[in-house]
Amino acid sequence: MEKRREIENTRTSFPACTDIYLGEESVVLTMEMPGVSKENLNIRVEKDLLIIDGKRDFGEIEGNYRIREIRPGDFHQEYTIDDTIDRNKIEASINGGLAILTLGLKESIKPRKISVKVQ
């Protein structure tokens, strides 16, 4: 019961709409986070966990809601990343509520071409 109350007290969070794209050099995550500014986007890596937090700071408007479709709450999602991702090559940007995360792949994973020498 205590635990349940704790959950209810915390602000709701849900995952953002995401596109995950695997390219040759990197994994690109595009996330729709309307209302999240640069300061409120928090991305961290904890061991094998990539945690993305986007806080929305648009205040609740006082008044009579005629239509309410926008889900109140923050964005939160977690992804497990494996050893193919170079932890030092993680870049993030946010522009107009669209966050783009580029996770660089390790050199050893990239396809290599081995030239055959004929002697």
Binding site: E32, M33, P34, G35, F58, I61, E62, G63, N64, Y65, R66, I67, R68, E69, I70, R71, N95, G96, G97, L98
Partner: peptide, 22 residues
């Protein structure tokens, strides 16, 4: 896109989620 439509005393406010749009 999702919208909110709020009626206030002096005005209406429409909020709309448009991520990535210019």
């Amino acid at each position: 896109p999702a919208i909110n439509f709020v009626e206030k005393e002096n005005e209406y406010t429409v909020t709309c989620e448009l991520p990535g749009l210019e």
